[in-house]
Design a protein around this nucleic acid. Sequence first.
DNA 1: TCGAATAGTGTTCAAATAGATACATGAAGA
DNA 2: TCTTCATGTATCTATTTGAACACTATTCGA
Lengths: 204, 204
Amino acid sequence: MKNTLTNRQQEVYDYLKRESRITGVMPSTREIQHFFGFASQTAAMNHLRALEKKQVIQRVPGKARAVVFPDELDREEIVDIPIYGNIAAGMGQDVDHEKEGCISIDIRSLGLKHNARTFALKVRGESMVDAHICDGDTVVLEFREPRKNDVVAALIDGETTLKRYVVENGKPFLRAENEMFPDLIPARELIIQGVLVALVRNAA
Amino acid sequence: MKNTLTNRQQEVYDYLKRESRITGVMPSTREIQHFFGFASQTAAMNHLRALEKKQVIQRVPGKARAVVFPDELDREEIVDIPIYGNIAAGMGQDVDHEKEGCISIDIRSLGLKHNARTFALKVRGESMVDAHICDGDTVVLEFREPRKNDVVAALIDGETTLKRYVVENGKPFLRAENEMFPDLIPARELIIQGVLVALVRNAA
DNA sequence: TCGAATAGTGTTCAAATAGATACATGAAGA
DNA sequence: TCTTCATGTATCTATTTGAACACTATTCGA
């Protein structure tokens, strides 16, 4: 009795969902009426009532366009993290951050603070497998000062690479996260673009 | 001239964002008025006009509560993936899927299809590091038939573990993703709960 | 075969809402 | 100094919109 929408009700539900996502505005009863070609606005009202009874929407009485999807209501806050480019493949120093897409994800899953300034980079190549970061992964970086043993994105010779930020004898160094490159680069001389805070892998 | 909101305008913007997220309904100009204690509804109108001029909101003329956030508009569709429990720590066979939270993420970042049936599990322990899956990672699994070399979640002795689904001599086997356990278990005898499609790591 | 749920038409009303117009004041810039 | 912008008050209007009421027809399960 909860989720068994009729075909027609599913159509109305899908319309509401689609329209509110694309336009950002929930349709009014009359917009529903006209979309489905109803001769009467009451038909739309009836469908809304039915959908509400079956728990898939909620309505706030007396307010205009006040149809709410309960699922989306108890959702965490969502942030849009811009993807700026590739690791070890570009992202010059002063490239003015040309966006190549976006990750939209709730802040809790990434453990982000609300005000954190973050961006993302696509990983190319197998150079970070030692840190369990694979080719094709998307790493999320925060723009802040690195702490000891953070993984950081550093700009070296015009290329961005991931290194671990280590402190030895009180001095900061960058250690490569790949045993093929046992470098130890003084951290003071380079530009650290961000600190790794999260990772998203698409394995499909 | 774009992003330089005044303090008051930022307050109004935050109010709109917060209210629409929590209640699911965008405030009307009169609700804005009353929230801020304006004596006139025009004050709210003026602020909306200012915010629109500065590009942080859009409005649809003639429609009620039709304030839109442009950033959220060109966002991909977002799915809520329920987190059901831990890998190698529980999730009995017929546990009726008690939800322990949710990952909300756009479908494109995870490469999911719109209709895919997915769920997520928290990884406990270092047993999957060979597949570059670490303690604390959240794996996203799809409920479908495994293909060759997929990583699958299998129920063995009342525990869920990740294995690789391999086919040798035409017969399916599960191979442990940890060199400490070089098992090769006939796949026919077990319950495969899902196929790994994505992974989210919180490194912060 | 009776009632409930589904799916509509047609009409009317009142509340919710956007929007316009006139006016005021103070701060910031040119 | 003059103008623009930010931030308001006060009032009125037209439109949008939810909501109620009366009525019809079909399907489906008990």
